[in-house]
């Protein structure tokens, strides 16, 4: 596993994209904090970077990389190497590379320029979202043999989790606004990793609003470290479950 992973990571590093992505994140996050005199505003810009850009890049890059490394995978699979090892090495290597890019591009400057505040949760959310979308990318890439279709599917995933699902959720809240929906709403956000990551950051950024007049339920959930734990565990599940689904597909896939 380590041996195979090492070669995939080496291959990823030969691909300039990871380097460019790291650089882009670094430039964006540093400029946000040095150009904007108000750290609060910079934090909000960064929030959108973490919630929008990071998932988009993670899912598209992973899908494209997977399609492009088809030959490499074929080469590996014709060698005496376990299919499982090849697959999970791909997952781990991509998660590690993109996670590293995020940590260097966003995590490090954030820790240096703006320690405290929502920084810790922001990094945690960004890292977990990276992994979730890498994971989703494998599902997309293994759902079709056609690269264009695969990329289309990843964009659909991204769009769904960023916008469509929230629209649906808002509709539910609106349609059933006469009922006590706190628990249902909270449960429904668990079905969207972007919502989970966003809530993780909200727990720090908007705790005053979250705990204001929305009932004791939110207060109990958000006011405790238990809330953070639950959200964190759910996000990890979101990173793991699609990988397992993708593995089922990959284990039966004809190369």
């Amino acid at each position: 596993m380590i041996r195979v992973g090492k070669h995939i990571v080496q291959d990823l590093m030969r691909n300039r994209f990871i380097l460019a992505y790291t650089g882009l994140l670094l430039v964006l996050s540093v400029s946000m904090f040095s150009l904007d005199s108000d750290p609060g505003k910079a934090t909000l810009s960064l929030l959108n970077l973490v919630l929008l850009v990071v998932p988009l890049v993670s899912i598209i890059f992973t899908t494209i990389y997977f399609f492009n490394s088809y030959e490499f995978i074929e080469l590996l699979l014709s060698q005496p190497i376990n299919r499982k090892v090849v697959f999970f090495s791909e997952v781990v290597a991509l998660s590690a590379a993109l996670g590293m890019a995020f940590m260097i591009g966003v995590g490090l400057p954030l820790l240096i320029l703006n320690p405290g505040g929502a920084t810790g949760y922001m990094i945690l959310a960004g890292l977990l979202l990276t992994w979730v979308f890498v994971s989703l990318a494998f599902v997309a890439a293994l759902s079709t043999r056609d690269k264009a279709k695969g990329i289309g599917l990843t964009l659909l995933f991204w769009f769904y989790f960023e916008l469509i699902y929230d629209g649906f959720l808002l509709y539910i809240i609106y349609a059933f606004s006469d009922y006590p929906l706190e628990k249902v709403t909270l449960a429904l956000t668990a079905l969207n990793p972007v919502d989970l990551a966003r809530i993780l950051i909200l727990l720090k950024l908007d705790i005053s609003a979250l705990m204001g007049y929305t009932g004791a339920f939110y207060q109990n959930f958000f006011g405790s470290s238990q809330g953070v734990l639950v959200v964190g565990v759910l996000l990890i599940l979101w990173a793991v479950a699609p990988v397992l689904l993708a593995w089922r597909k990959f284990s039966r896939k004809d190369i």
Binding site: D166, L169, I173, I199, L202, A209, L210, T214, G215, Y218
Partner: peptide, 17 residues
Amino acid sequence: EKMPISIVLWRSILVLL
């Protein structure tokens, strides 16, 4: 204001738009 629980969608892209 009207639907306090909709605070869970605060700072989502939908709300931003």
